[in-house]
Design a protein around this nucleic acid. Structure first.
Length: 816
RNA sequence: GCGGAUGUGGUGAAAUUGGUAUACACGCCAGACUUAGGAUCUGGUGCCGCAAGGCGUGGAGGUUCAAGUCCUCUCAUCCGCACCA
């Protein structure tokens, strides 16, 4: 029979749907695995990154089904978000129609790829049912004080009268009308994630076994906990007067109190309230004001590349020496971190040094290396000995930090403080296609929550989206309502939520079975059984935000009493990007590969095999059309050679000692492949090496013609490969083994027994020749044999050392 | 700028614990079969060299009997940076 991928794949896909092969069981006494891929945004078509992601999770899900686990492998769509609105602006599409059409199309793609997702638990986060539960959680969080309003700076396009996302700001201008954007201070909602800073940090070690180290490090750095000293810098009389006696001092934070005597200037963020006051009260000239404005409108990344500053011509007094210190504005000082003001020590901080050099400010050295002189052409940031530091002279700089903090505390001029880089999470968006924030503004009662029984607050369908203003705010009727408390006319909140909110709890929703889908978000019993997610698979680009937010929600839900664990994802696999011609696949570069066309040409099994074979999951994957062809040829060979199998419903029983050398070798290769497969499926996930092992075994099988060895080989190899290339394996299995081999396989150790082994022989570490010795050969005779074989390289030299590494090599160290 | 990664043949990559560098595949070369081949099968293939031999894991040092693997420095490329998801 010819290998016909398409008809064979259709046949099995139909079988799986009809038999509901992939629905999880509600029998909670079974051992379980929860295998989850990060769900996609329904952009219209799957791209190769998706195919890679879902192939990985599908492979694991199918493996665990073979191992008799109750497997939950769900899928959904992260279906709120800007692109739906952009499509509306561009093509006048209805965001909802656009989104759900895309979802339908992508579901079809999932099916043709043979992904074993649970059909019954599919969801889209824009479903009103999802919104309903989410809004309920938001209300819970507000009641707990975890959601609050405060002013925040947003990108504002004055022409379109709308808020812009960072990606909609191109070179400081609006993406649609090219108007220069301004920063606008607006009321926004924030989640108090900082209340969980310590726990989010301290629980990271719990994830060490299951998460990549780099992700843990990135999260740790993002939370950015640092201990240090906080103190006030007081203005001198003249400056105090200049500021109309409005500000006596400002607060600074430093992680380097040991450098306190080296402070030679201080710097404020351009957004600092003192700067704002000076601008508003004409204490600065127009030129300087426009410079500050420009600084504020530059992105925080650009700001840190090229340092710039402005002298404010005011001074503060050094807290210990009383010396006058000039106050500057510096672009690299960020308002969100610490107090938005820093003490600058150019001699011992790289950024302060660059800044001081640029503006010719004093550089005062207070730490020198323990032995010798310090350098003067850059900042000395290492530990050293204090000098020029009053009574702290001679101390180890690291150890002096406590003493200096103590000194500040004893004199009530400062205190020990812990700071975090982590900021509260701004969640409001002035957009239409998102989950409405379920609050109401009442003239009498203020900010009021909607009643839970009125949820969901759904979006209006007839809406005009032009890219100008906020569509919900502009809608003629939607926002008008009555106050849930007093019943008077009131206005709905027109901000919607950040889509990171939906993706922070979708993995919990998947635990709910369809029966009580309408009634509750999930039950504690369901969560208890299915959570945590055993394998969470997704792109490395989510290493920080999504994963941190999901961890935060889990902890909040725990504190709200919905669940009783601390962390949602036991194991995390971060996949690399899919590249073509060395660059990330993107429409603008024209280097995309369409999964549909690929499947039509070669079938889903080929796509899946290539993706797993071309690179280990965590690495970038370089697309290569001819290697895809190679994957197809392998499957075809795999299918064609299955004709060597003799039909059987049990694995053949083979007398190993009676076999020929080639037959023994073939069996050894087959069982090596099985051994490797177990390692790969259970802890290494390097499917590329597993597949290579199967290919080696196939090559070895092909050098012999014992039909029992062939049958046993296929029994095992098609079982190993079923999670990767399921369609062709089900076909073979069904035809020859009555599907009996898709179950756990046992390793037969007897096939690995060897009576001799080949050792490499090295002279001074350089490999020269090899020897074959009996497996139990003594060290002495191995050395003797090696010397004999390597005599050519030993002539006229003395062997001074002999090293034998069992089963690997002999190294002879010679002199002369 | 800060934070995180990656770098091995012509290409994708392997080497799990410091122990025979380049498994497996793609590509290329040769052969077989064929009216034909963008099919299939068999064999070869790190680089330089006629050879002996030498050189080889981004680059420069170091530790070691032994380094792709450990250490120091350096170069290049990529990802994230809070309103893209």
């Amino acid at each position: 029979m010819e290998y016909n991928a398409l008809s064979l794949e259709k046949k099995w896909q139909k079988y799986w749907v009809e038999n509901k092969s992939f629905e999880p069981s509600e029998n909670f006494s079974k051992k379980k695995k929860y295998i989850l891929s990060m769900f996609p945004f329904p952009s219209g078509r799957l791209h190769m990154g998706h195919v890679r992601n879902y192939t990985l999770s599908d492979t694991l899900a199918r493996y665990y089904r073979q191992q008799n686990f109750n497997v939950l492998h769900p899928i959904g769509f992260d279906s709120f978000g800007m692109p739906a609105e952009n499509a509306a602006i561009k093509n006048n599409a209805n965001p909802k129609t656009w989104t759900y059409d895309n979802i339908e199309y992508m579901k079809g793609e999932f099916k043709t790829l043979g992904f074993s997702f649970s059909k019954e638990r599919e969801l889209a986060t824009s479903d009103e049912l999802y919104t309903k539960f989410e809004q309920g959680f938001i209300i819970d969080m507000f009641e707990k004080g975890l959601l609050y309003r405060k002013k925040g700076l947003l990108n504002w396009c004055p022409h379109d009268q709308t808020v812009l996302a960072n990606e909609q700001v191109i070179d400081g201008c609006c993406w649609r009308c090219d108007t220069p954007i301004v920063k606008k201070d607006m009321n926004q909602y924030y989640f108090r994630i900082t209340q969980y800073s310590d726990e989010l940090l301290e629980d990271l070690p719990k994830l060490e076994d299951g998460w990549p180290k780099q992700v843990l490090t990135m999260q740790e750095n993002w939370i950015g906990k640092s201990n240090g000293l906080e103190f006030d810098l007081f203005f001198d009389e003249e400056s105090f007067a200049k500021l109309n006696h409005k500000f006596k001092s400002f607060d600074v934070f430093t992680t380097r109190p040991d450098t306190i005597y080296g402070v030679s200037y201080t710097a404020l963020a351009p957004e600092h309230e003192i700067v704002t006051y000076m601008i508003e009260n004409s204490l600065l000239n127009d030129e300087i004001i426009s410079e500050i404005k420009e600084m504020k409108n530059t992105s925080s990344i650009d700001r840190q590349k090229e340092k710039s500053g402005i002298d404010l011509n005011i001074n503060v007094l050094h807290p210990l020496t009383g010396k006058k210190i000039p106050v500057w504005i510096a672009n690299f000082v960020l308002m969100d971190y610490g107090s938005g003001a820093v003490m600058a020590v150019p001699a011992h901080d790289d950024r302060d040094y660059d800044f001081a050099k640029k503006y010719d400010l004093e550089i005062k050295t207070v730490i020198k290396p323990f032995n010798g002189e310090g350098v003067s052409d850059k900042a000395y940031t290492e530990v050293g000995e204090l000098f020029n530091s009053g009574k702290f002279d001679g101390m180890n700089s690291k150890k002096s930090q406590c003493s200096i903090i103590k000194h500040f505390e004893e004199n009530s001029i400062g205190k020990k403080t812990t700071n975090y880089k982590l900021k509260d999470w701004g969640v409001s968006r002035q957009r239409y296609w998102g989950s409405p924030i379920p609050f109401i503004h009442c003239a009498d009662c203020g900010l009021v929550m909607e009643k839970k029984e009125n949820l969901p607050i759904a979006l209006p369908e007839n809406v005009e989206i032009t890219g100008e203003g906020n569509p919900l705010d502009n809608h003629p009727t939607w926002k008008y309502c009555s106050c849930p408390t007093c019943g008077k006319d009131a206005i709905r909140e027109t901000d919607t939520m950040d889509t990171f909110v939906e993706s922070s709890w979708y993995f919990l929703r998947f635990c709910a079975s369809k029966e009580n889908w309408e009634k509750e978000a999930f039950s504690s019993e369901q969560l208890k059984y299915w959570m945590g997610v055993d394998h969470y698979i997704g792109g490395i680009e989510h290493a920080i935000l999504h994963l941190l937010y999901a961890r935060f929600f889990t902890k909040v839900f725990r504190d709200l009493g919905y669940l009783n664990f601390d962390e949602p994802f036991d194991k995390l696999l971060t996949q690399g990007m899919v590249l073509k011609d060395g660059a990330k696949m993107s429409k603008s570069k024209g280097n995309t590969v369409d999964p549909d066309a690929l499947i039509e040409k070669y079938g889903a099994d080929t796509a899946r095999l290539f993706i797993l074979f071309a690179a280990p999951p965590t690495q970038e994957l370089e697309w290569n059309d001819s290697a895809v062809e190679g994957a197809y040829k392998f499957i075809k060979r795999f299918f064609d050679r299955s004709s060597h199998i003799v039909k059987t419903d049990t694995i053949p029983n083979i007398n190993h000692s009676s076999l020929t050398k080639d037959e023994k070798f073939a069996r050894k290769k087959v069982y090596e492949a099985l051994k490797r497969a177990e390692e790969v499926y259970n802890d290494r996930y390097t499917f590329n090496t597993m597949i290579a092992g199967v290919m080696e075994a196939m090559n070895a099988l092909n050098t012999q013609d014992n039909s029992d060895v062939w049958s046993e080989g296929y029994w095992i190899l098609s079982s190993i490969m079923e999670p990767v290339i399921p369609h062709v394996c089900w076909q073979i299995s069904n035809e020859y083994f009555l599907l009996n081999n898709l179950a756990p396989q046992k390793i037969l150790e007897e096939v690995f027994v060897e009576d001799s082994v080949t050792l490499g022989v090295s002279i001074n570490g350089k490999r020269r020749c090899e020897i074959e010795v009996a497996i139990d050969e003594s060290k002495e005779s191995i050395i003797e044999f090696a010397k004999e074989k390597a005599a050519k390289w030993l002539e006229g030299k003395t062997v001074v050392k002999e090293i034998v590494v069992p089963k690997k090599l002999v190294n002879l160290v010679v002199k002369g």
